[in-house]
């Protein structure tokens, strides 16, 4: 009996030692940079916005550049399902990720993965992770929403020959923190300049993916009820701006102008037609990816973290003056 117990205890102890040896210690490289025990630098990237053109192209570019650096990059995606993202990232952290890259995250919805990363001392680098500094990220590179709003409101001002007394519809999407911020900033700027917000409040698109049709209906129906009550449409992203421009074209109007943000290829084609789509703003996400990749590489090399944890970069206005020379990335 005693011999059996000794053998069993011995086997258990051996098994535990073997399991310990096989397991990935998430703290192995925590906070010090460098690769894990197996020499591989593991990056767990995620985005809940992979279904959007910007989200997909940016994260694909990140994966491509990360792999070119020799990193082991795994991309986790969802269709705005943060429950799935939090679960996936907690698993990735347990499996020994060295760095997390948050692509277009909603900082309000990632607390579980942030807590898990803090517990394992894994830094989170972010692309477009909000509109203000956030201690959850060692670095967040994003576009200056104030500048995006200024550029587009300025373009509308130019197109309409001033803002004072003009009726402008504002189309936003509050669940997206970036669009929400720039839409509210634009609305404030319009009101401060003496413009009237058509309909009295911002129009909210329910789904960015189907927003072209939503905006088409918003503007068509508004013009039906107020044929002389619209001079411009400010839209927080190009997809919906395309619908607004289409509604104006279908109404046979050439005195109402639209601006968007993103500089999608299809939007730039519309701008070139000198129709209602007057301007958009190009956000060069690829240059943002380049910067974040370099900063992650610096961390991998010797554990150096970026000096600033919130970096705002500026967009470029694309209008009739430069649309022909612009090559869209989306």
């Amino acid at each position: 009996m005693r011999t059996r117990l000794t053998i069993t205890a011995g086997l258990l102890a051996t098994g535990l030692l073997a399991l310990t040896g096989c397991s990935n210690d998430p703290n192995a490289a925590a906070g010090t940079g460098g690769a894990g025990d197996d020499g591989t630098f593991k990056v767990a990237a995620f985005t809940a916005g992979y279904g959007t053109p910007g989200g997909k192209l940016t994260l694909d570019k990140f994966v491509e550049e990360g792999k070119a650096k020799g990193w082991d990059v795994t991309l986790y995606t969802s269709d705005f399902d943060y429950d799935k993202i939090n679960s996936d990232m907690q698993s990735a952290i347990t499996q020994g990720a060295d760095v997390i890259l948050a692509g277009f995250p909603d900082p309000r919805q990632i607390a579980p993965l942030v807590n898990a990363a803090e517990g394992a001392e894994i830094p989170i680098f972010s692309i477009d992770g909000g509109v203000e500094p956030n201690e959850d990220f060692v670095e967040d590179v994003t576009f200056d929403q104030d500048q995006l709003a200024e550029l587009t409101v300025g373009a509308l001002d130019e197109a309409m020959g001033g803002l004072e007394g003009k009726d402008v519809m504002v189309i936003g999407h509050d669940p997206h923190i970036g669009i929400m911020t720039r839409s509210n900033l634009a609305m404030d700027m319009l009101e401060e300049s003496g413009a009237n917000i058509a309909g009295g409040e911002m129009k909210q698109a329910l789904n960015p993916a189907t927003s072209q049709e939503e905006a088409l209906k918003f503007v068509t129906d508004f013009l039906q009820a107020n044929p002389e009550g619209l001079d411009g449409v400010w839209v927080g992203w190009d997809h919906a701006a395309l619908g607004a421009a289409q509604a104006i074209n279908e109404a046979g109007r050439d005195d109402i102008y639209v601006t968007g943000v993103d500089a999608l290829g299809v939007a730039v084609e519309e701008i070139k037609k000198d129709g209602p789509f007057y301007a958009s703003v190009h956000q060069d996400w690829f240059s943002v990816v380049d910067r974040v990749v370099e900063d992650i590489e610096a961390y991998r090399a010797d554990g150096t973290l970026p000096q600033e944890n919130f970096v705002e970069v500026e967009g470029e206005l694309i209008d009739r003056g430069n649309a022909d020379d612009f090559t869209p990335s989306m």
Partner: peptide
């Protein structure tokens, strides 16, 4: 017909 109406096709255009 929807794609023709919008002159563009997205990955979720008719899902709703």
């Amino acid at each position: 017909i929807l794609v023709s109406r919008l002159s563009s096709a997205s990955s979720t255009s008719a899902n709703d």
